[in-house]
Amino acid sequence: MTEATHLEPHLAHHYQSLAQQTHAARLGMWVFLGSEALLFAALFTGLTVYRTLNGSVFALASQHLSVAFGTANTFVLITSSFTVVLSLHFLQAGRKGLSLFFLVFTIALACAFLTIKAFEWLHDFSEGIFPGPYYAQKELQLPGAAMFYTFYYLMTGLHGLHVVAGMGVLAWCTGLVARGDCHAGYETPLELGAMYWHLVDIIWIFLYPLLYLIT
């Protein structure tokens, strides 16, 4: 808490030390992610309620989704979570090149996730699975079936938006690391970006069994 700490270029004027600022940044991110979790909790509640009301129909509807696509995407997203943490690890170790490599790799995995998602949606569309009033799947015409897919699109859509936002954040982090504005000793931007990415992963971890694996 001495004057010397103020020489640190990343330190804002109202903090005493970088440790204090990092603590604040992490806590802020955690609180924000908690808030995000509640945003999704509203959708999960809706899904659970409608599952309670339309149990068997939801199970039937779930079987029209492609478990292969969903499982592949789960593996992709978990691996991307792993690579982003590797990127942070190598940044902390001062290995900027490896850090950048893993960041770009993570973004590539995110692209892969979105591509698989796009193919999955196209596959769904071809079966006549559309949300709400446009639902036209011939084999499953029961009340509640359209509701399952409406929630499927809402939840995967919102999650997809978060993936896109996360990609933006990671791309921004890549820029910072490349320019040297985020480096060993000051990893906060990358650390927070990675945390956001992990949240995207965690939400998918819950979406996967709830949407694809209903029996």
């Binding site: 309620v49 409608y50 949300p131 709400g132 009340p143 079936a145 359209a146 509701m147 409406t150």
Partner: peptide, 13 residues
């Protein structure tokens, strides 16, 4: 978009 999220006719509540 008339998705029927709260429409009882379509399994909503």
């Amino acid at each position: 978009f008339d998705f029927g999220i709260f429409d009882p006719a379509r399994g909503g509540d």
